[in-house]
């Protein structure tokens, strides 16, 4: 469809991927790391897929890119939720600088 637009979108996606990766290293505990890991990487992957959608002319390929975006938007937050819940239920402590912890066991 349009190579330039696609490249710009993919570049933006790569920026968010980079932010997500650096966040995974810099942030202090598992919950903050999940924040960086899910948000930035979800948008990064979605933008890269969107870029591919713009760069190709084949309809089946574009359709698959769209389907993958939908799939990632559903699965990625669910996986992060499962990880965060498992961590908190099994007693992983929050970072020392955390302000509050109102989590209650069921």
């Amino acid at each position: 469809m349009n190579n330039e637009i696609g490249l710009v979108i993919i570049a933006a996606g790569l920026f968010f991927e980079l932010a997500g990766c650096i966040g995974m290293v810099r942030f202090p505990d598992v919950y903050n790391r999940l924040q960086a890991g899910t948000k930035c990487v979800t948008l990064g992957v979605c933008l890269i897929l969107l870029g591919t959608l713009f760069m190709t002319d084949t309809l089946p390929l574009q359709l698959k890119a769209l389907l993958c975006i939908v799939f990632i938007l559903i699965t990625s937050p669910t996986a992060a939720h499962a990880l965060a819940r498992a961590a908190r239920v099994s007693g992983v402590k929050l970072w020392d600088g955390s302000v509050v912890d109102q989590f209650e066991k069921e």
Binding site: F15, I22, L94, V99, F103
Partner: peptide
């Protein structure tokens, strides 16, 4: 989130509400 990641002082105030 990207702003907090790249900021040298890492301005976060995390917690569970």
């Amino acid at each position: 989130v990207a702003y907090r990641v790249f900021h040298p002082a890492m301005p976060i105030r995390p917690g569970i509400l």
